[in-house]
């Protein structure tokens, strides 16, 4: 399976049918998430209507963690097996990961001000999420810092693999330290500590963000593959 999609042509064939499906899922899930999140879901008994910020803040945080983890996995595959599509995936996904992390940080701040009375606190969860944002920016800067694109991608892959240590720190920071940030309401093994009327917009937005990310990362990957093909042609190396 992995070897099969190391060939960009085969990968592009897969993209042709995955992309329209992802567009439909993204539009439907985001519309449902917005409607249920802003219109039908109830206010929280303590936080009032500010709880609606959760429907974008939490899915954006999930995306920030998921994208970085997938980039680190792709970087590992790219370094070990010289998988072209995996190498380009990390480069294509990085700006999207940075965008979701930025959304997570700013919406968290907008939620924190009315609930905690502060825009920002140097809490373990917030600080580790800020480090994740800097890791994304650092990766993008490092990849573009080399004249030889391949050298940049390899250097960036090492940064991604070193930085992956931050992911469990973000995830478990609320359990390991006494933090102002609340612990997870959804865990894999326990019954959700959240009402179904709030769970629906939360999961809809999460599905919508994932599908939107899929669409965008596939287009960015197609762009990177096309750029690389053009570069090879310009250097006279053939296609």
């Amino acid at each position: 399976m992995m070897k099969r999609f190391a060939n960009p042509r085969r990968f592009l064939e897969l993209v042709k049918w995955v992309q329209p499906i992802a567009v439909v899922i993204a539009v439907t899930a985001l519309a449902l998430g917005l409607y249920t999140g802003l219109v039908t879901s109830p206010d929280d008994y303590q936080q009032g209507s500010s709880v609606r910020i959760m429907y974008i803040h939490v899915p954006a945080a999930w995306m920030a963690l998921f994208i970085y983890t997938s980039m680190a996995a792709a970087a590992f595959v790219g370094l070990v097996w010289k998988h072209i599509v995996a190498e380009l995936y990390a480069k294509a996904a990085a700006p999207l990961g940075a965008a979701f992390t930025f959304i997570c940080l700013v919406t968290g701040s907008l939620w924190g001000k009315p609930m905690w009375g502060a825009w920002w606190v140097w809490d373990a969860r917030l600080t580790s999420a800020l480090i994740l944002f800097f890791l994304y920016l650092g990766y993008m800067a490092l990849v573009d810092a080399f004249d030889d694109e391949q050298k940049g991608i390899n250097a960036g892959a090492f940064l991604l693999l070193v930085g992956v240590v931050n992911i469990p720190i973000i995830k478990f920071s609320v359990d390991w330290w006494n933090t102002l940030h609340q612990p997870a309401s959804l865990t894999r093994f326990a019954k959700p500590a959240i009402d179904a009327a709030m769970l629906l917009p939360l999961l809809s937005m999460a599905v919508g963000f994932t599908a939107l990310f899929t669409v965008l990362v596939l287009v960015r990957l197609k762009t990177e593959i096309a750029r690389r093909k053009l570069k090879i042609r310009q250097q006279g190396g053939g296609a």
Partner: peptide, 23 residues
């Protein structure tokens, strides 16, 4: 939804869709 926290909710959703729209 009542009008409490309208600024914070509008700013959060607005920013989210501006960033994702720009991307």
């Amino acid at each position: 939804m009542n009008g409490d926290y309208f600024f914070y909710i509008a700013a959060a959703y607005g920013l989210c869709f501006v960033v994702l729209g720009a991307m």
